[in-house]
């Protein structure tokens, strides 16, 4: 029970700190999960990786984190804690904003948040890459997938499956 309350606390805080999208809180999520729930960085990155196989918002992977900590109940608590606070805030702030109309400060806030959220996403890339890129083989796979993602319209899930098959034979 204590664990579930802690999970709810951690993920509702992350929900409200997720400026510019969910990926921005990846490094913070990793360090908090390690600190409070003994989820190692390697477990975190593996869970993040397999979470990318699911459709929809990519941060749904938080459900796997909750599941790792406290089973199905953990997943449900995390789902509510991570999605409800920011959604309610957005609902009411959005209504207020539409009523007030466009003001110069909203644009200022949006421009100010953009580089911060990109910086945080770069930190997310750094956190995941530290664990995911273990040598030339994984770097090669990442490079090929990256080029294909930018240059072709192949469904990302197919690329993930192909990468899994390739690494099965390479490693």
């Amino acid at each position: 029970m204590i664990t579930l309350i802690q999970l709810a606390g951690v993920f509702s805080m992350l929900s409200l700190l997720a400026v510019g999208g969910g990926s921005a809180v990846l490094p913070e999520m990793q360090s908090l999960l390690e600190q409070y729930f003994q989820i190692s960085q390697s477990e975190f990155v593996k869970a993040y990786g397999i979470g990318q196989l699911a459709p929809g918002p990519n941060m749904l992977v938080v459900l796997i984190m909750g599941q790792l900590v406290a089973g199905l109940a953990g997943a449900l608590v995390v789902a509510v804690a991570f999605f409800l606070p920011s959604s309610l805030l957005c609902l009411f702030a959005g209504r207020l904003w539409l009523r007030i109309g466009e003001c110069p400060w909203r644009l200022a806030v949006q421009s100010a948040l953009e580089p911060i959220s990109i910086g945080l996403m770069c930190s997310g890339v750094y956190t995941i890459a530290n664990e995911a890129l273990t040598g030339w083989r994984s770097a090669l796979i990442a490079l090929i997938v990256g080029v294909l993602l930018l240059r072709s319209k192949i469904n990302p899930v197919l690329l993930i499956f192909a990468a899994a098959a390739a690494s099965y034979f390479l490693f």
Binding site: G49, I128, E131, S138, P156, I160, A164
Partner: peptide, 14 residues
């Protein structure tokens, strides 16, 4: 298998 999945995931995020 997961080593490849993680490598693809980092490419996706990057």
């Amino acid at each position: 298998l997961l080593a490849g999945v993680m490598a693809a995931a980092i490419a996706l995020l990057a």
